[in-house]
Simulated scan of single mutants.
Amino acid sequence: MPTENKSCAAGVTLRANRVYVAGPMTGIADFNYPAFNAVADQLRAQGYEVENPADHGVVEGAQWADYMAYDLTRLGLCGMIALLPDWEHSKGARLEVLIAERLGMKILKAHELLNR
C-alpha cells in the first residue's frame, strides 16, 4: 500500500509512494515499451505515482545519454525503483539501480511490488 508524501525543511518532499520503473530498452523490440507501460499501469491502479521512462517515447535526434540525463532527474523524485526482468543486462538500468542504492531508495523487482 502506498504511503503518504512527507514534507521536510526547505521544501524537500520525500516521495515514498512514487515509483521509478527501470529495465532494458536498447536492442529490444519497441524499446520494451509494452512491458514498461504494463507495469506502470498496474502500479498506478494500485495507487502509486509512477515515473515511466517509456512515457517520453522516442525523441528525434536524442542519444542514449540524452535519455539517461532526463530519466535520472525523474528517478530522483522517487522513493523506490521497480525492476523489470533482465534489468541487469541494461547499462542504463544498472546505473539507475546504483543511484537508487546511493540515495537509499527501496529497490524491488516489479512483480514483487505488484504482489505486495
Rank of each mutant, 00 (worst) to 15 (best):
D41Y: 00
D41F: 01
Q42C: 03
Q42V: 00
Q42D: 04
L43R: 01
L43Y: 01
L43Q: 00
L43F: 01
R44M: 05
A45C: 06
A45D: 09
A45V: 02
A45T: 03
Q46P: 07
G47R: 07
G47K: 07
E49N: 09
E49V: 13
V50H: 03
V50L: 12
E51A: 11
N52S: 06
P53E: 04
P53S: 07
A54Y: 00
D55H: 13
H56D: 11
H56M: 13
H56S: 08
H56F: 13
H56Y: 13
G57H: 03
G57P: 01
V58M: 09
V59W: 01
E60Q: 15
G61Y: 02
Q63Y: 12
Q63L: 11
W64V: 09
W64S: 15
W64P: 07
A65R: 14
A65G: 05
D66T: 02
Y67M: 10
Y67V: 03
M68E: 10
A69Y: 12
A69I: 10
A69W: 11
A69H: 13
A69T: 14
Y70C: 09
Y70V: 09
D71S: 08
D71A: 09
D71K: 02
L72D: 06
L72P: 01
T73H: 07
T73Y: 05
T73I: 04
T73R: 14
R74D: 08
L75T: 03
L75M: 04
L75R: 00
L75S: 03
G76R: 13
G76F: 07
G76N: 12
G76M: 14
L77A: 14
L77S: 13
C78G: 11
C78H: 02
C78R: 00
C78M: 06
C78W: 01
C78F: 03
C78I: 02
G79W: 00
M80C: 14
M80A: 15
I81P: 00
A82L: 03
A82K: 01
A82Q: 01
A82W: 01
L83E: 00
L84F: 05
P85H: 09
P85M: 07
W87K: 05
E88H: 13
E88T: 04
H89Q: 14
H89I: 06
H89Y: 11
H89M: 10
S90Q: 06
K91H: 12
G92S: 09
G92M: 04
A93D: 05
A93G: 02
A93L: 08
A93T: 02
R94N: 15
L95S: 08
E96V: 08
E96Y: 03
V97W: 00
V97C: 05
V97G: 05
L98V: 15
I99V: 15
I99G: 02
E101N: 11
E101K: 13
E101D: 12
L103N: 13
L103V: 08
L103T: 10
G104H: 11
G104S: 10
G104V: 07
M105V: 04
M105Y: 06
M105W: 04
M105F: 08
K106P: 01
K106H: 10
K106L: 15
I107E: 06
L108Y: 09
L108H: 08
L108I: 09
L108N: 05
L108Q: 08
K109A: 11
K109W: 12
K109T: 12
K109Q: 12
A110K: 02
A110Y: 02
H111S: 14
E112S: 14
E112A: 15
E112Q: 15
L113M: 10
L113W: 07
L114S: 13
L114Y: 07
L114N: 13
